[in-house]
Design a protein around this nucleic acid. Structure first.
Lengths: 203, 203
DNA sequence: CGCTTTACGCAACAGGAGTAGCGAAAATCT
DNA sequence: AGATTTTCGCTACTCCTGTTGCGTAAAGCG
């Protein structure tokens, strides 16, 4: 009766959720580095080989967990580009802070950005993970790109503005600041950033 | 006769260079993933413990190698902000491409950005590496920040331009594009990026 | 019902990161 | 010279990632 089923024994859907749940839980209180694949399998009550059949690498597993966290990010339009951008970048920054706290167990509020950097590294290491990460960011950012395009057609932005480039500037500045310079990503900075991108530097 | 020497047997300076040289060589033709600390020590003809006394982690070693590559990047002023920025960002992009080729051995011209992502991840994993990476980027970018400040004082840029924010936008866009979206970092993109940052998005 | 295919659990393994313990070497201090 | 301190080389070890092989379970196919 199987509609278009494959041949052999089907994958245990329960194993999938138990593994992802266990992985998320361990990630949250161990942090990335003390996160062990063996332990995930043990905590999920599943053989390690079963885990590796689904995610061939620790990197793949981590990205899958993060991707599940990233789903469902609502964006609302208010009509004013500046306030829309400010709010959206604020949400990104808050999400980064959530991941920051996930990346480092508890005490070391220091360096920041653990998970974001690990995801970027995983994307660089495996082509398929890279594609998944690209898709994840693409989904997440599509609405903002559309927002920029609409504002341009409304005449609120220059006619020759390229939404993609403007968005690279904004998001890039956030990640650069988070990963490289390590300076704070607070509301004041986001205001300055949006202001700078909208106004332009030239006199 | 030792002027202000420490107490015991001094570190072998020769070991330092032989290790760094071996590490660089292996990094260049193995790529980051197939890069093994054991192998570095073997190729340098040095005990593994001697290596770990200098760099307590593979991450530390990698960053030390990359930092040595990054030294001595000359920047020239022409007086015109646009062309100066374009040239400097072009140099960054070229450097990234060098690291890209270093990160991946040869055939897989695909995903890109290996080393950059690894360095960012290493910075996030260890506080001391993070400080070193920050310092490395700070040194590297100081001249450009000064350039922006001078252009502002010349009146070529808005009086309330914040060089730090503008630079975040420019550099951040490059790294974001390299690490996340994976789209090409060619001269045409750099022109569009500089143009967008200088002009501003608002109509 | 038997055959085939795929997933599962288990156990053993290869390889790399990082650590620990030991004797010997190279420096300084008294 | 002798004592002290630190490095060096070596070996052995632990922990983790990822793989392999095998017997068994769960599905579809004839």
């Amino acid at each position: 009766m199987g509609s278009a089923g494959q041949r052999g024994r089907p994958r245990s859907g329960e194993a999938d959720v138990r593994l992802l749940d266990a992985a998320l839980a361990l990630l949250l209180d161990r942090g990335y580095d003390r996160f062990s694949v063996d332990e995930v399998a043990a905590k999920a009550g599943v053989a390690k080989t079963t885990l590796y059949r689904r995610w061939p690498t620790k990197d793949h597993l981590i990205v899958a967990v993060v991707a599940r966290l990233q789903d469902s990010v609502p964006v609302e339009y208010s009509g004013d580009v500046r306030s829309d951008l400010t709010r959206y970048l604020g949400e990104i920054a808050a999400g980064l802070d959530r991941m920051r706290r996930a990346g480092r167990p508890a005490t070391s509020g220091e360096t920041s950005a653990g998970l974001v950097a690990e995801v970027a590294a995983a994307a660089a290491r495996h082509a398929d993970v890279g594609a998944a990460v690209q898709a994840m960011f693409h989904r997440r950012n599509a609405l903002v790109l559309a927002l920029l395009g609409q504002a341009r057609e409304r005449g609120e932005l220059h006619a020759d503005v390229e939404p993609e480039v403007v968005f690279d500037q904004l998001a890039g500045a956030l990640y650069y600041r988070l990963l490289i310079t390590g300076r704070p990503l607070d509301a004041a900075y986001i205001d300055r950033l949006v202001g700078s991108a909208l106004r332009g530097a030239s006199a």
